[in-house]
Design a protein around this nucleic acid. Structure first.
Length: 641
RNA sequence: GCCCACGUAGCUCAGAUGGUAGAGCGCAUCCUUGGUAAGGAUGAGGUCACCGGUUCAAUUCCGGUCGUGGGCUCCA
């Protein structure tokens, strides 16, 4: 029988069936393309090159350099690793699952002994041997029951469970060497392409991510099509390590976390505190300019408040236990919203004063599982750049739009211009009317579209009280960080029986929007440290310049210009120690200070400073007041005001 | 919380079959006054995370506690 095989872009050929994908593609592709093809899509479905075609098919080659190609490579690498582990440690090691993930792959194993770094060497060695052996990935299909029997004989209980849960009539298996694995595929034609890989770490993981299940050992690795790409990735990892905010935070004396004070609790050192203050001042200024009003509210409240708000019912796992004050229970706040509602309730409200835009840098305390804590990025006490907007339903879309404007303005000013944006819609459990949900979701969507933002819809991922927009910012290494969130809330206005008098002189319920732009100051500063590798732009660098004298002869002059600049608002330091200039420059450089002011006799005589930049370049000597003006100008530009 | 690994000077790390420890950087003092990434000398710093057990003796072995790191959604 003849069939027609058509390429995605239109070329087609009539061939005798059955024919393998590889043979069909041979007829349709250039030699160059053939070499780079490792799998294909047949009528939209991913298949191996060895798959036999029996009917008319539209084919699309999967090339090695594409994301899909890389996924297939990594998935195959996971299989090769599993085979290597089985070869070395024998069949008493049980295999679970081994998918490709964002930057590599992993495979989960059940083994009594922990894997050690020396084991990694052996496994990698064995993987290379498997690659050199050019073992083909052989696909086969078995009825589900037979596959269950096969894996039961091998004692592979996880595979058995997987097949049973699949409930499919037939399942596909892949064999390389004598290792057969349950797998949907597709895979590389053979193992020879798995040559640029590295095992990275081993970590515990629960079977199927459930802590009630067995704990498995997960070996993470990564793989690329050539050594160059692998090395670039490994180099990027090193680079990320250098930017680690925990390391830089210590070196630059920004913050400290101490055992005897408590995990997840941040102490801001003078430089970090100054950095934070600069960010807070900027934030407050921008909010003033965007018609917000600032609030301050307490850190604790009577437990009854949290009962009313529903936090005790829905959020108590994250709240610290109550304390007694005059025999009344009080609790630390995990959120600021009930307090803002308290401000709202201080008197009767009219539709005429809407929208109310109230912001606060509100410090909240949340219980985080011990294992989840991480530097500034996940802590137990943190300050949200919070705001609540109360408005009429007809103002919702415009308010969301305004928030997005302010949000992006602030993020961009801090150097973040790439985002992943998600719109999360109604989950299974929810409060509020369907009509409200639909209207609010629509308003969020329209605002995003009006702002020209591309976003992904996360169906059912909204909070129970309303739909939301989440914005993840991308840092200079392309890593995404969840910071901003904008949430509509149908729940709290109801629970607190909030109302306003409308134009019709009757009571209505206001719409409430929660939003945080930076998310938490702690996390945002952690991200900033990594994004800039500690070398902050002038406008929020805690130290903008350091005066370095060459000999004691210029000390008086240095003191004089230090006082002058400090008065003028330049964030200035002086290093007048009896050390060589080289030494002082090195220290200032390591402290990542934007400007070093070199002061020798020349500068002293002419009332000037010589400016050395962080990149090692020098500016010609300029008078002190000119330098002060320059700093002020650059800060104004930096603040985007 | 759970699994694995780890916890020695402010930082980065050595170290011993069980006999209370060392380097570099940093810090202090002195010498050196040197124009663009480390000048030299001397010195001070440690209940070896904490608690308990075994032992003549524990920082080292055992148990516990606290803390840190990597993970714990990404569907064979």
């Amino acid at each position: 029988m003849d069939i027609v095989v058509t390429l995605q872009d239109g070329d087609s050929v009539t061939v005798a069936a059955p024919i393998s994908v590889r043979e069909a593609l041979d007829r349709l592709l250039s030699n160059k393309q053939k070499k780079r093809t490792i799998a294909a899509r047949a009528n939209g479905q991913s298949v191996d090159l060895s798959r036999m075609l029996t009917g008319d098919t539209t084919l699309e080659p999967v090339l090695i350099e594409t994301e899909e190609g890389l996924d297939i490579l990594r998935h195959s690498a996971a299989h090769v690793m599993a085979q290597a582990v089985r070869d070395i440690f024998g069949p008493e090691v049980k295999v679970a699952i081994g998918p490709a993930i964002e930057n590599g792959f992993y495979y989960d194993f059940l083994r009594n002994e922990p894997f050690s770094p020396e084991d990694f060497d052996r496994i990698e060695q064995r993987m290379l041997e498997i690659a050199e052996a050019r073992q083909p990935f052989v696909r086969s299909e078995l009825p589900g029951e037979e596959a269950v029997a096969l894996f039961e004989r091998q004692g592979e209980k996880y595979k058995v469970e997987l097949i049973r849960d699949l409930g499919a009539e037939t399942v596909s298996l892949y064999q390389i060497g004598d290792f057969t694995d349950l797998c949907r595929g597709p895979h590389l034609p053979d193992t020879s392409l798995v040559k640029a890989f590295k095992l990275l770490r081993v970590a515990g993981a629960y079977w199927r991510g459930d802590e009630k299940n067995d704990v498995l050992q997960r070996i993470y690795g990564t793989a690329f099509f050539d050594a160059k790409a692998l090395n670039k990735y490994l180099h990027d990892l090193e680079e990320a390590k250098k930017r680690d905010h925990r390391k830089l935070g210590r070196e630059l004396e920004l913050f400290t976390i101490q055992d005897h004070i408590g995990p997840g609790l941040i102490l801001w050192q003078p430089k970090g505190a100054l950095l934070r203050r600069l960010i807070e001042d900027y934030w407050k200024d921008e909010h003033y300019r965007h018609d917000y009003e600032l609030l301050y509210t307490p850190h604790i409240a009577r437990q009854d408040l949290w009962k009313t708000s529903g936090h005790l019912d829905f959020y108590s796992e994250n709240m610290y236990s109550a304390m007694d004050i005059d025999e009344v229970k009080y609790q630390l706040k995990p959120m600021n919203c009930p307090f803002h509602i308290g401000v709202y309730g201080s008197r009767k409200r009219s539709y005429r004063e809407f929208p109310l835009r109230w912001c606060e840098l509100g410090t909240v305390y949340r219980y985080e599982r011990a294992g989840a804590l991480h530097g500034l990025l996940r802590v137990r006490g943190f300050t949200q750049d919070d705001a609540h907007i109360f408005c009429r339903p007809d103002q919702l879309e415009e308010e969301i739009f305004n928030i997005l404007n302010l949000n992006l303005h602030i993020l961009q000013n801090f150097g973040f211009s790439e985002y992943d944006i998600y719109l999360s819609t109604r989950p299974e459990k929810y409060v509020g009317s369907d009509e409200n949900w639909q209207r609010a979701t629509e308003a969020l969507k329209l605002a995003l579209e009006k702002k020209g933002l591309t976003f992904m819809v996360d169906p059912g991922e909204g909070v129970f009280y309303g739909p939301k927009i989440d914005i993840k910012i991308k840092d200079v290494l392309g890593r995404a960080w969840q910071c901003s969130t904008i949430q509509v809330d149908f729940n709290l206005p109801e629970r607190f029986e909030m109302s306003y008098i409308g134009a019709d002189n009757t009571e209505h319920q206001p719409i409430m929007i929660h939003r945080a732009l930076m998310g938490s100051l702690e996390r945002f500063i952690g991200v900033l440290i990594e994004h800039y590798a500690g070398a902050f732009p002038l406008w929020f660098a805690p130290v903008q310049a350091r005066i370095l004298n060459i000999t004691d002869d210029q000390a008086d002059y240095c003191e004089q210009i230090y006082a002058q600049m400090r008065k003028a608002g330049v964030r200035i330091e002086k290093d007048l120690r009896n050390e060589k200039l080289n030494y002082k420059i090195r220290e200032a450089q390591l402290a990542k200070i934007p400007y070093m002011l070199i002061i020798g006799d020349k500068e002293k005589e002419t009332g000037s400073v010589t400016v050395r930049l962080r990149d090692g370049k020098n500016l010609p000597p300029i008078p002190v007041d000119e330098f002060i003006r320059k700093v002020a100008d650059e800060c104004r530009t930096g603040r985007g005001i």
